[in-house]
Design a protein around this nucleic acid. Structure first.
Lengths: 211, 211, 211, 211
DNA sequence: CATGAATGAGCCTTCATTCAT
DNA sequence: GATGAATGAAGGCTCATTCAT
């Protein structure tokens, strides 16, 4: 099974699912975008839904792995939050299409396949909640509601994949720093922003997403 | 043309487009949800896309009207921002399905119909940008980037329609106040939050969305 | 739902399923034979399998009803057997295509639908077995095995639908008499064939299959 | 070309064609049942239809050969009939799947290939007709119609392949004797059944089907 | 020998839409 | 108003077959 062809299929699916939605993407669109006949497509995937699930699972598993690594050596809650935000910004900008699929097409999953993906997403969001909770416990954060804060923060950060363009005026580092700043403001951080080191996050990103 | 039937069709469309997406909703689903035959449906709508456009236009026009009214008698940028956030929260929570359609199904529009909706959305967002810009000019806000701040803020606020449940622990007023607080933090408001009066916003909402 | 069109669909299905088999018949063949587009077909049927099941069920239910009526007023086992054979011959010749479908396409049914049809078929065959058993008990029949006799007899009689042609040299009455004769020989009937009256069978056939 | 692999393919085809029908059997099913890839399958067969034809031809040729041998040294028509019935029973029970394919899938043949198989089948049935006719001429049989008798008799005997199970209560010898008995009854044999010797039939079967 | 890769044609079914009644 | 009937186009997927390796 030619690995490059499989990648082409996957990449085509990510692009089309992201821009037209799962239900808005036909098998024939997919085949054309991948440069194959629609019959050949089925050498590289199971059903259309299998392909969607595989994209989502892969994306979320990488994200969870990266989030765990990036926070494992950070004891300070503010530091953990900052790293999570930076990681999220990096991935939602540079893997813009993939993350849009993950965030936006969960409803297209059948009842049989949805739970798996939902639980991966929940596992990821639990890492954020835990960091926020710790920050509150230590008095470093003062959000009006911990849960609402998590939801608002995640929506704010995920939104990047919906508008980011590599042609824009900001580097990813720029963007990450700005989002960390906004995040801490949003969370009612008591102290001014400490100096943010992006290197640890960049390293993890390089390892997890690099080939 | 019975108005209640037309509303039933509209309501069914809002519910289905919001939960399954435009492409995931069939004409037969729509007809069944509205209690009509699929042929009868066409007495109350043009094409499926016409129905989508009409929902989006109606929603955005009401939103723009409300935003203009709510900010027309507020000269202080912080006040305008706060009112916009409160209004946005009110509508994205209480008109959750409708706003989800507006925010999420723009990509389903044909090239011919998209510009109209996009320009309505842009008009609405321009009111936010203007308030943010004014706040910066007056030195009341210090976001790292005015444009990024608008995008981040709007994503944060719109996210409510994706998770809000009326069974949750917060009243709409609660939620609005919390979001205003987070918004000002996100924007780097220099001064502490002044007392927020929700009455003007509530009045406008009652007028614009009341029947 | 135009009843004549529905009948045309049914008739087309019977003809095609009988001559090409269920799996050898395409939806497009069906549509063409019924004079419809393949989409319109679906106004008059559920799935292709639904159509098959409905044909089989209808055919078997009529057969069971007729068999019960034809034997209800015959106490003599030989008489019952003779009537069953005559009825079977009548239907398998005049409803040749339909019975061929019932007898030959059971294997095409999915596991979910097969049991219903199988139990109808079993109910019908039980009427035969009971008549044979009674004949043996009374000493009128001497087959070497009751069960094998039933199987052999039914196969012999059902075979008619596979070769009968209305252009052949025999009338249905002729054929029925000959088969009754062969059946009693096959079953080892002790006494010579009593005079066979076909009228009761013909009446039942007229009622059950007449419109 | 490994002969055992070829046999595996053939055996898989016989099993699947018999249980699902020719049109109900896919090339992939065939490949899987034979433990090959679908491409490799084509080293051992021509087209799917070639495989069907080859199975049918082989089966019918063996049957004709055996029928000729078994009747060649029997001058008495009743003896010939009895031997033909016994042979038919033996083969339709022990080669149940193969004979089911021969009897049931002729309609799946294309117009180009059907005549060959039909003429083989006709040659075989002619042997039966000839024996029946001779029996009638000599006054040993009194069927009401010679042709109908042949058709009824063959259907009765062929039916065995549709219900026989080696787990059943009868040995093949048993079954053969019972069928001969029923056959003579069906044909209106004037005299009681003479002693039936199965040995000549068994010998021919051993030679023709033995490996 | 064996098979991954490939495909045009076809599978059954549903799509959004129209129209005569 | 309302709907049965109708359809061309398209939906996702599988078909039997070929061929380079």
């Amino acid at each position: 099974m030619s690995q490059t062809t499989e990648r082409r299929v996957r990449q085509a699916a990510i692009e089309l699912f992201a821009t037209r939605g799962f239900h808005g993407t036909g098998i024939r669109d997919l085949a054309e975008a991948a440069g194959l006949s629609s019959a050949t497509l089925y050498h590289y995937m199971g059903t259309k839904e299998d392909l969607l699930v595989s994209i989502m699972r892969g994306s979320l598993e990488r994200l969870i792995t990266a989030a765990q690594r990036v926070t494992s050596d950070a004891s300070d809650p503010l530091d953990r939050i900052s790293r999570l935000v930076a990681l999220h910004v990096f991935t939602h900008a540079s893997q813009q299409l993939e993350t849009r699929v993950v965030d936006g097409e969960i409803r297209a999953l059948s009842d049989a396949r949805r739970p798996e993906i939902i639980s991966l997403r929940d596992a990821y969001e639990a890492l954020w909640q835990s960091a926020i909770d710790d920050g509150c416990t230590r008095g470093q954060l003062r959000p009006s509601s911990r849960r609402v804060a998590r939801l608002a923060l995640l929506e704010m950060c995920s939104g990047i994949s919906r508008w980011y363009s590599p042609d824009g005026p900001f580097t990813l580092d720029d963007l990450a720093r700005r989002y960390v700043e906004m995040a801490l403001g949003l969370l009612g951080a008591a102290d001014p922003l400490p100096e943010l080191k992006l290197e640890p996050v960049q390293e993890v990103v390089a390892v997890v997403w690099g080939d």
